[in-house]
Write a protein that binds this DNA or RNA. Structure first.
Lengths: 168, 168
DNA sequence: TGCAATTTTCATTTTTTTTTGAAAGCTTTG
DNA sequence: CAAAGCTTTCAAAAAAAAATGAAAATTGCA
């Protein structure tokens, strides 16, 4: 029955549009290193006007509840979706957050800045090792480490500003 | 012999520094979606003063020649390394390009902008499907598609500008 | 030119990531 | 407060990505 539906749907333009749009987000998310299911779910919600429940999403995309639950969790943590109350239904329902500016800002906060923090730690460890070893060519390593410091500092400044520049 | 060397090296601060720095780039590259070997190779070259041949890199990192060759190819295509002539040796030798500004600009050109191009194609296909189907709620889909257009346009402008802002 | 050294390619193997599905854990409501 | 409905978790399976290693191709020296 599910498969029949799918075959039936494939023949109209609305579902071609849907397929195309899911594809769009699958690829976009994969640039950001997010799994395919996350892109599929977001793509579905982005082009659906009414809030969808988890099992509606799971059925439409033919993916497991487990995947759907995980994907929704990821999207929630990125604030890329919100839940929406639907009268008379006790399931949770989701709609896409379509302000890309906020979306990117969250992605940067959530997924990029933590890496910059641990990068800073690693740099201090490098400096410790450098001090602990008086034999090595200090000048060369110092210059290189200095560069890394400037890079992470610039990243920490630039990336959050980037989202602000998005007028979307 | 190779393993012995490794064990021996692990006990001095210079190699701890090396390990830390390789780790740094492995993680940085993985943010950008590049394989671990690429990060290892770049990290090694970044903290080595003299040009290294492919088999020196492969030996130091204990990775296969195949991986090393692939990794160097990737790094070359990103212009993250350059070859350097070494007198009396017919092997190619490599050194790291350390200007991060140029490096990022190349990464954006090479790895991101192509995706934006195919995104644009996908958007035009969406518009075709929308026109081909007069039944569906045009207003809603039009708004959503418009947003995607603005997003890709902004990306195309902003990303190249981003590298320019890096004063490194 | 021919041969040895070096590099690249690519089918196969290994590793990593993602998905599945069933069980456990909540929550609502009758 | 029990049981049905819904969601999450997590071990195992499947899929995808990366590394290996040996064969093919290229390069540059005699």
């Amino acid at each position: 029955m599910q498969v029949e539906n799918k075959v039936q749907k494939i023949n109209n333009e609305e579902s071609k549009l849907e397929v195309e749009s899911i594809d769009f987000f699958v690829r976009m998310m994969s640039i950001l290193g997010l799994p395919r299911s996350v892109g599929e779910i977001y793509g579905t919600l982005y082009f659906t006007e009414s809030p969808l429940s988890m099992d509606e999403i799971s059925t439409r995309l033919s993916i497991s509840m487990g995947s759907t639950s995980q994907g929704l969790k990821t999207l929630r943590s990125l604030k890329a979706i919100r839940t929406s109350y639907v009268k008379g239904d006790r399931k949770d329902h989701y709609i896409a957050e379509t302000e890309f500016r906020r979306l990117f800002s969250n992605f940067i906060k959530e997924d990029i800045l933590p890496h910059l923090d641990s990068a800073a730690d690693r740099i201090s460890r490098m400096e410790k090792h450098l001090i602990a070893n008086p034999d090595i060519n200090e000048e060369f390593y110092t210059t290189r480490i200095e560069k890394l410091k400037r890079l992470t500092k610039a990243g920490r400044k630039l990336l959050p500003a980037l989202a602000g520049l998005l007028k979307i």
